[in-house]
């Protein structure tokens, strides 16, 4: 897929010289995972980040989604450096602007599908507004789970769980969707359906950054970035 989303559009997300290391498990020197990664993502763009296991793509996604902080470098969201904002601002970003779906779905096991979708709005003593609950049902309909609102994750298939996670992203009207190997734990047919859903969201204008090691899925993005050993080594339109 080749489109010119990045040519001159202002970036919604821009990373500059990101570096991140994790402490070595054997007590040795910290292992660098990101070694000066930079990228720009334009609004409405669907970017895939490809690379082998251990190349640093999931860490990059976590840093972009504000789930962890880099050791150095900056992440700009709408021009604001979100690595230097308060914890409260980062919480608001994760709540309202960013949505993340994971390979392992990460649903709360004792909440129903609808409750998992509405989880971001349960962060207080005030009840979730009826209008929001209705919206939660609508997005469940949209991802094809109209009859599963009351089901617990344990009663859903892997594909259905991933759809609940996507619905949780949609219900918030997030501006950027981060997807970390969203089809990694699914069979081919289910993975294909999830990819089709993500592509549809991309066509609707949702900015998406997806980490994948599957070249076929990467090709569906507007642009594919390739990482190796903590470095961005290629960019394919």
């Amino acid at each position: 897929m080749t489109t010119d989303h990045t040519a001159n559009a202002p970036a919604i997300i821009e990373a500059r010289d990101l570096c991140k290391s994790y402490p070595a498990t054997d007590g040795g020197a910290p292992a660098p995972v990101l070694r000066g990664v930079s990228l720009r993502v334009a609004p409405g763009e669907f970017v895939a980040v490809a690379g082998r296991s251990g190349s640093g793509k999931s860490t990059l996604l976590n840093v972009l989604a504000s789930l962890t902080l880099p050791d150095s470098g900056t992440v700009l969201f709408d021009g604001q450096d979100i690595t230097r904002v308060s914890e409260a601002r980062r919480n608001r970003l994760r709540h309202s602007d960013f949505a993340v779906i994971f390979q392992a779905h990460h649903l709360m096991p004792y909440l129903t599908a609808l409750e998992n979708v509405l989880l971001p709005f349960m962060n207080g003593l005030a009840p979730v507004p009826a209008a929001m609950a209705e919206k939660g049902r609508r997005v469940l309909d949209r991802v094809g789970l109209s009859g599963k609102a009351g089901s617990l994750p344990g009663a859903l298939s892997g594909g259905e769980q991933q759809r609940v996670a996507i619905a949780r992203a949609l219900v918030r009207d997030a501006r950027v969707l981060f997807a970390d190997e969203p089809t990694g734990s699914l069979d081919t047919a289910t993975g294909e359906a999830i990819m089709e859903l993500l592509a549809e969201l991309g066509r609707d204008g949702l900015t998406t950054v997806m980490v994948t090691h599957n070249p076929d899925y990467a090709r569906r993005a507007h642009r594919t970035l390739v990482m190796r050993d903590g470095l961005m080594v290629d960019s394919l339109d």
């Binding site: 989604a65 789930l67 914890e87 409260a88 919480n91 608001r92 970003l93 994760r94 709540h95 309202s96 993340v100 990460h106 649903l107 709360m108 096991p109 989880l119 971001p120 962060n123 207080g124 949780r168």
Partner: peptide
């Protein structure tokens, strides 16, 4: 801890 991670990833504060 994973549930805490999920809550934090959807915007729950530490106090939440």
């Amino acid at each position: 801890r994973r549930e805490i991670g999920i809550l934090r990833s959807v915007g729950f504060s530490r106090s939440g």
